[in-house]
Design a protein around this nucleic acid. Sequence first.
RNA 1: GGACGGUUAGCUCAGUUGGCUAGAGCAUCUCGUUUACACCGAGGAGGCCGCAGGUUCGAGUCCUGCACCGUCCACCA
Length: 799
Amino acid sequence: MEKKYDFTKREKKWGRFWEKENVYKFSPESKKDIYSVDTPPPTLSGKMHIGHAFSYTQQDIVVRYKRMTGKNVFYPFGTDDNGLPTEKLVEKEKKVRIFDMERKDFIKLCQKTVKELRPAFIQDWKDVGMSCDFELEYSTITSEIQKLSQKYFLELYKKKRAYKKEGPAVWCPVCQTAIAQAEMEDKEKEGVFYDISFKTQKGQITIATTRPELLASCVAIIVHPEDKRYKKFVKEKATVPLFGHEVEIIKDKEVDKSKGTGAVMCCTFGDVTDIEWFYAHNLPLRVCVNKDGKLNELAKKYKGLSIKEAKEKIVADLKKESFIKKEENITQITNVHERCSAPIEIIPTNQWFIKCLDLKKELLKMGRQLSWTPPHFKTRYDNWIKGLRWDWCISRQRYFGIPFPIWYCKHCNKEVAANIKDLPVDPFSSKPKKKCCGKQDFIPDKNVLDTWATSCLTPQIAQNLVKNKKVKEKLFPMSLRPQSHDIINFWLFYTVLRSNLHFKKLPWEEVVISGFTLDEKGEKMSKSKGNVVEPKTVIEKYGADALRYWTASVGFGEDIRWSEKELQAAKRTLTKVWNASKFSISHLENYKPKKSIDKKKLEEEDKWFLSKFQKTLKEYTSHFEKHHYQKARRVVDSFFWNDFCGNYIEMVKKRLYNEERNPEGARFATYHCLLGIMKLYAPFIPFITEEIYQGHFNKFEKEKSIHLTDLPKIEKELSFPSSMKNIEDIIEIFTAVRKFKSEKGISMGKEIEKLTIQTENKSIAKNTAVIKDTLKVKEIAFGRGDVRISDKLFLKIED
RNA sequence: GGACGGUUAGCUCAGUUGGCUAGAGCAUCUCGUUUACACCGAGGAGGCCGCAGGUUCGAGUCCUGCACCGUCCACCA
């Protein structure tokens, strides 16, 4: 074994080895229990983010553990590369703008870009040591998946679960598409709160608004029913300044009397409450904002202006005519689109929805049946469902996505759906087989499906990667869904919803939720803040194993803080693993491992060490079974560093060098436990453990990779409780003597003339050899000690 | 406004069903190098366990209230 471990070279080597040897390949013919993982398909972007490295490593650790407990692991890998996020990526990468291009050209460019970027992007996942079967691979824009997604859409369409409706929808004027409730985000903005007076028969009424540009859309003024100031105005008509149309003054208890002037104008549509009032009071529709965010003819002379320009002009004109009574600068919170940060508008459009509000009870029940790690994230799921107000809007007015397999008859406007056997279908380039109104004149549905409407089908997509029917059936429901908490409201919720609608089943047995990566200051890492650390840089500097080791220091659901120091510590552990293995193996070269050993050949320290390993194994397993991998890692750390390196090696060194006192027993315990430690570490640091396994152990073990071996089994015959106690008492003596040396400034290597031990534990007298070896003591005696170590132990040390 | 999580050594965090004289790693200080490892070893110093009450023989751990930090949801006229 080389003196220094060159992680860059070795990690590349083993990465290639795993791929070439198909180490992580799913075997449909295997008789083992299947453990199936609904791997999150990352949204295709230039490169992997550190948050990805963090959360994917955590799930990979769990999966690797499962593999080593004898499960037949089904762990596919896909990328999500259609829809808005991909369009945004292409616009940025290729420096184009979607609305400047023809639909088909833009789609072509998207396809080309995806093809270019995808391999390098996936490589990042391989480099971090993911143990997916990369041959079980999918991309959410392929025709196969289009077919699958369209098929499930049609299923809902036929059940009338998917429906098209004209109505106010949340709209992003920059992306020019409808978006779903979950895609909105809060953002603080500076704004101005204007008091604007309206004329009525009974005098002036003053409303407060931050959006004077929507005056043209004003359809009512609303006051609180118990507001004395405005009682006399109720049911009166008010004239809208600048635009002159009349609106009614009505009452509604949703109005906050203390806000602004206590009177509010209702526009179609300024915000979400306007929608409620619009329906509740049966108000007329007056839409003055177009889909591109510009005002229309209803805005009269302001037509064609953007919202921002219109606001300036309208405010100026209102001031000129003294309609503005007061203005106040405020910081307000506005809803913006999470993908582009543009303030959203509410515009009535024709959109496709999936009806889900009637399923709240069932969905809550499914949440209860699912096993959550950590458990408290279930509450977030519950809260989201309880707070749902709209059906899921699944249509987007974009180009690069999965089209709706729907046409409309040019003559009667009737919807015509594609046949399932003809899928996938692009309604732009094909036509329905049947006729309508005696002709085949159709126009395509121009919408594409929301990306989530496809990505929430990952269990079905994954299942479809396997051809064997029997095996396929075993893959659903899946065992595990790993994901981060920020998309509980999207991906997790939608997957449960679809699974309910199509199969009436939970999609998985359990879900594990990972947290975020924070920078040194504890702030969330994000591209916009510019505080991101790139996994590639970390891997180059410290190696993937170190990165993984670090990510395993916190558990599921917990955020992790970036710290260079922690990475250095991780690397130190890896060096220690390397050095300890190298040393141990150098003494095992001529040793042929045995399954069992004659107990007479075991010294007390061997028995202690083997017992301690049994204990470690037990704790490790129990932590992992609860998905507490971070605790499992700590258990191994402690066993490896303290018991193995700190004590055991020191105790048996002399035996190994000089072939005395049952060297056979020391070799047995060393081989057994070192291989054991490597296995226990393997899920965390797969590269270096593989290197060490291949450097020695594979000569005797039958599996071609450590990752295909089973974890050691608990063996009662290797547990010796009395030896545990005896060596622990002896270690107490070690500590005391080391302290004595340290205080006197004596080097640890210097010999001690005589050590007198006063103890109640009579077994220690039988094990003086190990004390002599470890502490370099010439003579050991039993009698009165003059230094009190504890109630039961006194020592006399003569140097 | 509602919900969830957090608050323990200078920093990052462990602390199972109440038994703690509160631990680990990093940082710091002292001492020690040549048959694994200075990317090392040994040892020391360092804590009103967020605050205030309560239950108990006994509270870091259980209960109540509060404060601060983080996250999600709602409000956002």
